[in-house]
Design a protein around this nucleic acid. Structure first.
Lengths: 146, 146
DNA sequence: GGCGTATTATAAGTATGCTTATGAAATGGT
DNA sequence: ACCATTTCATAAGCATACTTATAATACGCC
């Protein structure tokens, strides 16, 4: 296989693998009544709470306006909370509520299951290698992301 | 790093890298007036023409109905063609027109540029390794895709 | 050969994301 | 202190994808 072909193949595999990983998780999440856009918000909040909407949107890689509606819904259902910032009355700080904890537990289990399936048959060394190579690709691409 | 952490990290990198790759290409394509959904159709057709809409949709990983509208637009602009199948009057076979060729040339160049940026600093051997590892992940996940 | 089922494309309605515009509040230069 | 600029959240309108339903045609079992 020529260098250029191998590179093209790599793009294809990268795309496919990521799509399948997402899908696999989606399928599991859907069985629990969690839709993609919903679990993504919860997932990011579990990593870090108290962000402004704009910051959270940046983290999630969606436009702030797109997050607004998701938060509207999640807030209505009592899973997240908008708290006014004391020092800047323009913005809110976003927090999870206690009611969100059960969903998070489920999400963590689903993520684990998906990963196990994805990495079946790969040695710890190979997983590590894959992670490092992907990390370099990511850095190459994120250089000019702003 | 524990095994489980390393695995979680891998999912994150995979997701990120794929997203950035897509985005990088999108940004380039957009400068040429090509939107995501449009170039995806053209791209897949360049690989293989003459498919039924349902088959093409399956390849592209979208629902058939979603493809219908894209084809409506692309057909209107004369970039693709729906040809009736002789032996099955229910279905169309989809083909690119001559008018689509310039766009495809541009797409190929953009893809090349994106790949070069993504893989900067990786040796041919590393690219190959990455491709093979991703291939295994893909296979693990695509087993139960249907 | 004939009828039930499957397949193909599409339509209607809904969800979700984006671009662009807007109002309120903060910030910075002078 | 004042005005221009920036930032934050949201609104309106559009693009795109999905779920579910439907009409036309093909297929398969008996």
């Amino acid at each position: 296989m020529s260098k250029s072909d191998s590179e093209a193949q790599m793009s294809f595999e990268l795309h496919s693998a990521a799509r399948l990983l997402r899908r696999n998780f989606d399928r599991r999440a859907r069985e629990h009544g969690l839709t993609r856009s919903r679990w993504q918000v919860l997932w990011h909040l579990a990593r870090q709470e108290g962000l402004k909407q704009a910051e959270l949107a940046e983290n999630m890689d969606v436009a702030p306006i797109s997050l607004t509606r998701q938060l509207d819904n999640l807030e209505q259902e009592g899973l997240v909370e908008r708290r006014r910032d004391d020092s800047d009355r323009r913005c809110f700080r976003i927090y999870l509520t206690e009611a969100a904890q059960p969903a998070l537990t489920v999400l963590r289990e689903l993520a684990q299951a998906t990963r196990e399936q994805a990495l079946e048959g790969l040695s710890a060394r190979e997983v590590d290698q894959l992670q490092k190579l992907l990390g370099r690709v990511r850095q190459n691409l994120s250089r000019d992301e702003k």
